[in-house]
Every structure is written in C-alpha cells, then in structure tokens.
Design a protein around this nucleic acid. Structure first.
Length: 278
DNA sequence: GCCCTTTCCTGGAAGC
DNA sequence: TGCTTCCAGGAAAGGG
C-alpha cells in the first residue's frame, strides 16, 4: 500500500529514469475509470504533445507539471505501479494506461485492483488544495499539529487517516507512529495530553523518514503489494515494529503484538506499551 | 458539521 | 485437492 515514503520513492525513481524533459507522443487508456474526469479519448487528445517539466509529490499524489499548464496527477491507491517498457512489449491485463514517450519508451500504469487514478487537469488545486499539512515539510510544527487535533473527539487512528489533517499517512505508518509514541489507536484525540501529542508529533516524521530511507515497504510478493519503478522492492518491512507482526514480541518490552480492527482497518498494537483507554 | 457506512476491485487466504 | 467465500485496503459518496 503506497503511502508517503513509497510515493516519494516512485517520484525519485521516475526522475532518475529520465522522465523529466520527455514529451508524450500518444496515450492509450484501457480502463476508463482510471482517468477520472475525462473519457479515454479526451485524455489521449489532451496529453499528446505535452512535455514533462517537473516531478513532485503532494500527500500520496505523484504530481507532474506538464507543458501548457497541464498537471498530471497519479494516485497509486492500493496496487498502482509505474514502469517503463518497450512499446512492442505485450500489454498486461492490469496495465490500464500507457504513455508513448519521445525517447522510444512507454510509461505504463499497472493497477491490479483498479482503485488508482491518473488525472490530467489544469486545476490541480481542486484536488491538492484541500490536503492537510505535509509531515516532512517545514510547515509541520508542534503548534500546527496541536491545533489540527484540538477539539476532535474521533479516535486518533481515524484522524491520522484523514488526508485533510496530516497528508500522506496510511495504515502502515499510522500503526508504527502510534507504537513509537506509546499511544493506543482508539484514544480520542481530545484526551491526549500535551506530552502525548508531542511524542506523536515526533513519531510521525521518524517513521516516515525510516520508510523513505528503506525505499518504502514491500509486503510479500503478490500482485497487489508495493513495487517501485523497475519492479524494485522496498526494504522497510524488516524495520517495522508492529505492523503485520501479530504474535511476535514487541521490540521494546517483549509483550506479544496483537491485531485488532479499528476504523475499518487492521491495527497492530503492543498491549503493554500502548495502554487501551477505559 | 461531524461521523459512520458503503462502494469501488481483484488476488489470495481461509474455510469447507 | 478443489471449489467457494471472504477479506484487504484509500478515498469519495451517501446516509444519519
């Protein structure tokens, strides 16, 4: 499941592969819902001739500034992947968008579960403008973080999922950050003490930077796990403390890690380090 | 306004 | 072993 570290890894890899500066000659869309907001024909007509000018990331969106004020926004959601191929390479049934580039390669969007989105727009702020603070950005300070959570009665795990509050977190890094901060995920945000908020504020960038350094988290070997460009696996799985470690010993205290379901998501906690609320 | 549920999809695990 | 059922997951839409 690509979250902030995985998406940033893909952006870095696309850049290293020389996507910036390339021009799109043609596009083919085989699953229309992927290019939300346009028909496949409109998408192909609008992107043809556009040049990739800059690559970036906002929350879990890959952002590509194109020529003539277009922006290409790519969200990998659960299972999206990007890779370069030769045009004659047969198209897999999960490759829903193919961009023919002016250097003889194709950039293909592969998405087993079809939740991903490839959006071409001249108004990226309609999508990116409502996103919350970047947890690795300069704007993420303790006062901002406290203000974002102040007066919220929802459980902290559900709030951290909300992309309009802190942008880029998902199930893996939320569980890891809450473990680092020794907070139970079902704690209501407005019950956190200032010391607890400070621990969480420090834990979020810590686990994201660790994930980024390891080039993301790849779980298992299936068609739905994370792979970066050129099929490279991320190495962060070995560095996870509790996520998908049900039944194993907590690396801090030795208690057995348990799995529960909160906010409709599997959740992993150390019952000793992360005391449940009453 | 806030919060919870449902929907979108398919592969793969679990159950029989 | 082989078939069927169910679950995972992010975000947006819908409902209370």
């Amino acid at each position: 499941m690509p979250e902030l570290p995985e998406v940033q890894t893909v952006v870095n890899d696309l850049d290293a592969a020389g996507l910036t500066g390339r021009r799109v000659l043609a596009a083919d869309v085989s699953w229309p819902r992927t290019v939300r907001g346009m028909t496949p024909e409109e998408f192909a007509a609008a992107i043809a001739g556009r040049r990739f000018e800059a690559l970036g990331r906002r929350a879990k969106w890959i952002t590509a500034d194109l020529s003539e004020d277009y922006t290409l926004l790519i969200h990998l959601r659960m299972s999206g992947r990007l890779h370069f191929t030769a045009p004659e390479e047969p198209r897999s049934k999960h490759e829903h968008v193919a961009l023919t580039l002016d250097d003889g390669r194709e950039l293909r969007f592969h998405d087993t579960r079809k939740f991903g989105r490839v959006i071409l727009t001249r108004e990226p702020r309609e999508i990116l403008g409502k996103l919350g603070v970047e947890p690795l950005g300069a704007d993420f300070d303790l006062k901002t973080f406290e203000a974002l959570l102040a007066g919220r009665s929802r459980m902290i795990k559900a709030l951290l999922f909300d992309q309009e509050i802190v942008a880029g977190l998902g199930n893996i890094y939320i569980d890891e950050a809450l473990w680092e901060a020794k907070l139970h995920p079902s704690r209501r945000a407005d019950t956190l003490t200032s010391a607890e908020l400070k621990r969480l504020y420090k834990a979020i960038p810590l686990v994201l930077r660790r994930g980024l350094k390891n080039l993301g988290t790849t779980l298992g070997t299936g068609k739905t796990t994370f792979y970066s460009v050129a099929g490279r696996r991320g190495g962060n799985k070995e560095d996870l403390r509790v996520f998908r470690r049900t039944g194993e010993a907590c690396p801090r205290c030795g208690e057995t890690v348990v799995r529960l379901v909160l906010a409709q998501r599997s959740t992993h906690v150390c019952p000793r380090c992360q005391a449940a609320p009453d």
